[in-house]
Simulated scan of single mutants.
Amino acid sequence: MRSFEELVLEAEQADVDGWGFGFLEGRATEERPSWRYVRLLAEQLGAANCALDLDTGGGEVLAEALGMAASSPPRMVVTEAWPPNAAQAQRRLAPWGVDVVRTALGSSALPLPDASFDLVTARHPVAPDFAEIHRVVAPGGTYLAQHVGAASAFELIEAILGPLSPEHYLGRDAQREAQAAREAGLEVMDLRTARLRMEFFDIGAVVWILRKCVWWVPDFSVPAYEPQLRALDAQMRAGEPFLAHSTRHLLEARRPL
């Protein structure tokens, strides 16, 4: 295995824009939920007339689903707040005539008309605002999403930051989000949860994922957390991958007629 310094430098220089995870190929693994979100998304897109994908990143997931769908919606819109991701989405989704709408960083407001989409989707939205989702989905329309669940990757986060407070474990809870959807006026049709094994095999993979998922350790830098990173590096060099667990939930809801 290359030195700590070589692996870290490579990870610090690697691109983290968009939602591609090619850098982790052969360096980390993560189980996938049994429901196969992209397949479900492709099925829904094939039957939609006007669809909206929230927080699309670089459009990677939506492009895969559109490529699988029997047909694409006559009108397709995506939102994205991070400028480099929005630029990637514009290029990647151009073959399907998708409109990319820039949203304000830190705001959940959607600059879109009321009741204008029969399908609203999201894969790992930043912070789903169910009141806004209810507003833009048409009566009888569907919200289909895969959300990040509670305490996702907390083993890694706590290896860097130390133990988190109990309040952190309450965020992104599937039942709480389902109840928030109901309170916004949506009818929850399906809710499924999964806890999925993650393994990291070298310190470069850890540094890269912490750079990409900036909300995990908001002030992350290698110098600030070098002792923790070196401890993880020593564990992996000894042949013991670092084990964590991601959590996900599938939420399908509809706006009543």
Rank of each mutant, 00 (worst) to 15 (best):
A127L: 13
A234G: 01
T193F: 01
L144V: 05
V120N: 08
S108V: 10
S3D: 14
D202T: 06
P223S: 08
V77N: 07
F154H: 14
R75V: 14
A194H: 03
V136Y: 04
A153L: 11
A87H: 09
H147Q: 01
P73T: 14
V77R: 05
S165P: 05
S116Q: 12
C50M: 08
L229W: 00
M68Q: 13
R32L: 06
D190P: 08
M236L: 11
L232V: 01
R248V: 02
G67L: 09
R248C: 03
L196H: 11
A94L: 12
V61S: 06
D55E: 13
A70H: 05
L93V: 02
E43M: 08
L210H: 03
P74W: 14
R36Q: 08
G149R: 00
P95S: 10
L9T: 06
L119S: 13
G67D: 15
V61D: 06
T193V: 04
Y225I: 05
E132G: 11
L161K: 09
T142I: 11
S107F: 14
A151R: 13
Q13E: 15
V126T: 10
M236K: 02
L164G: 09
A47L: 14
P83H: 09
A138I: 07
A253S: 12
D53Q: 13
L229P: 00
A63D: 13
L105C: 12
D233G: 00
G20A: 07
R230M: 03
A81W: 02
V148I: 07
P256G: 05
G58E: 11
H245M: 01
A14F: 10
L196T: 09
R2M: 11
Y143P: 05
D99S: 10
Q44K: 12
R27V: 04
L110G: 07
L45N: 08
D129I: 01
P111T: 06
A94C: 07
D114T: 03
D129N: 09
T79H: 02
P218D: 14
G106Y: 14
T247C: 08
T56A: 08
G26V: 15
W35T: 09
L243D: 09
H134V: 04
F220A: 05
A28E: 06
L232W: 01
L105A: 13
A70I: 14
E12C: 13
E158V: 04
M236C: 04
E5N: 07
P218W: 11
D114E: 04
A205F: 05
R92E: 14
L170V: 14
N49R: 12
M76Y: 04
M76V: 08
W215Y: 06
D233F: 00
G46T: 10
A180E: 11
K212E: 13
E199K: 00
P241Q: 02
Q235T: 00
A238H: 00
E177F: 12
D190C: 13
P111L: 05
L251I: 10
V77G: 06
G97N: 12
Q235V: 00
G140K: 04
M236E: 01
S72L: 10
Q90R: 08
F117V: 09
H147C: 02
P256E: 02
R75M: 14
R75L: 15
A81K: 02
R123D: 01
